[in-house]
Computed example of a mutant assay.
Amino acid sequence: MKLKFILVLLALVFSCSTDDDDNTNPVNEVEGLLLIKEIVNGDQTIELFNEKGMFETGYNDISIRLKDNATDTYFEDASLSWMPMMQMPTMQHSCPKSAITKADGKDTVYTGFIIYQMTNMDSSGWSLTIEYTIDGLEYSVTDTINVMQYENQNVASFMASDETRYILALIEPKDPSIAINDMKVGLFKMENMMTFPVVEDYTIALDPRMPGMGNHGSPNNTDLTFNSADNFYYGDLSLTMTGYWKLNLKLMNTTDDVLKGEDVTEENDASSLYLELEF
């Protein structure tokens, strides 16, 4: 009788343990992200995600997964690269972009960024080519994408006094507040229509103003300087109230020559180089 009781008890424990294993949910490695687009390429599908579920002008942080359509599973050891392309009436060009790398702590997610410096009024004009390698086999796929116009100027494309075209993009703050905010921007130069390397060791002077409030400024701002750890520029942005802010900027090279932008004075209410922010 005692042996029978023990056998029944063991059966119950084993059953509960098996049920627990069956109910284990797989980790969602893109939780909190929204799907931008799926690009089908034969036996694989490329999934593109970010926090908004769309591409916009300016800086876009993008997460990528590569799915095996036959098994409905995701590749963990692929190698990927990309080339965004804007088709103009008489020419085409690319834009600043990062390499694609494996996301920290993720098995199936790869990450990178693209900075779209412009778009058409109807969000058309851009395509995205993705090349990837799986188990030594190389693949390539190209598809059109939509790039929406961001409501404020979060990216500036300009010719400077050194006859070089630069791309300057606002990255942070994404959620500004009445405080001293960490400001982060990316600065790139147009080497040719397809190549936009990072610009190192320049200085970006910052003077935020509120045009709708007498063009007043704010205290405790600091100029943006280059960080070689991630190749972006960082500074302090002081916001003293909610509303529309024009972030007046001056770009200076390694010898402090001003390449673009002017001081804000009583006679000059804005710099020709600026970004915008509203909250």
Score class of each variant (00 low, 15 high):
Asp122Ala: 12
Asn69Arg: 13
Gly243Gln: 06
Ala70Asp: 14
Glu172Gly: 07
Lys174Ala: 15
Leu275Asn: 02
Tyr233Arg: 06
Gly186Glu: 08
Asp107Val: 01
Gly217Arg: 01
Ser17Gly: 00
Val13Cys: 07
Glu56Lys: 11
Leu7Thr: 00
Gly125Val: 10
Ser228Arg: 12
Phe232Ser: 10
Ser157Tyr: 14
Asp143Thr: 05
Ala169Tyr: 04
Gln153Thr: 15
Leu80His: 08
Ile100Met: 05
Lys250Thr: 01
Asn221Leu: 07
Pro197Asp: 04
Lys67Tyr: 01
Val27Tyr: 03
Gly42Ser: 06
Ala229Leu: 02
Glu191Gly: 03
Glu266Pro: 00
Asp182Trp: 03
Phe55Met: 09
Ser127Tyr: 05
Arg165Gly: 01
Ile178Pro: 03
Phe188Arg: 06
Leu128Met: 13
Tyr234Pro: 02
Ala169Glu: 11
Ala156Ile: 08
Ile100Gly: 02
Ser272Asn: 14
Gln149Cys: 07
Thr101Lys: 06
Asn25Tyr: 10
Tyr132Val: 09
Leu137Gln: 15
Pro208Asn: 09
Gly32Lys: 00
Ile46His: 04
Met241Asp: 09
Val155Ser: 10
Ser228Met: 06
Ser15Lys: 00
Thr242Asp: 11
Arg65Phe: 01
Asp223Val: 03
Lys97Asn: 09
Thr240Asp: 01
Lys102Val: 02
Asn231Lys: 10
Tyr139Asp: 04
Phe196Cys: 08
Ser17Ile: 09
Leu206Phe: 11
Asp201Trp: 14
Leu277Phe: 02
Tyr139Pro: 03
Phe158Val: 11
Ile167Glu: 09
Thr240Val: 11
Tyr244Gln: 08
Asn231Glu: 11
Cys95Met: 10
Thr203Val: 15
Gly235Phe: 04
Gly32Ile: 00
Ala103Gly: 00
Asn41Cys: 12
Ser124Ala: 13
Tyr132Cys: 05
Tyr244Ala: 03
Leu9His: 04
Gly53Asp: 01
Phe196Met: 11
Gln153Tyr: 05
Phe196Tyr: 15
Met118Glu: 14
Leu10His: 01
Leu273Ser: 07
Asp20Ser: 06
Asn69Ala: 05
Lys102Met: 08
Asp21Met: 13
Pro197Asn: 08
Lys97Pro: 02
Ser81Cys: 12
Ala229Arg: 04
Asn231Thr: 08
Pro219His: 08
Glu138Val: 06
Lys102Gly: 01
Thr45Phe: 01
Gln92Trp: 15
Asp107Gln: 12
Ile115His: 04
Gln117Lys: 13
Lys97Gly: 04
Val141Arg: 05
Ile100Ser: 03
Asp122Met: 10
Leu35Glu: 08
Asp236Gln: 09
Glu31Ser: 11
Asn231Asp: 07
Val40Thr: 12
Gly235Ile: 00
Glu200Ile: 06
Asn215Met: 03
Ser15His: 02
Gly58Asp: 04
Val258Cys: 01
Asn28Trp: 00
Asp20Trp: 06
Asp107Gly: 09
Met118Ala: 13
Asp201Gly: 02
Asn146Val: 09
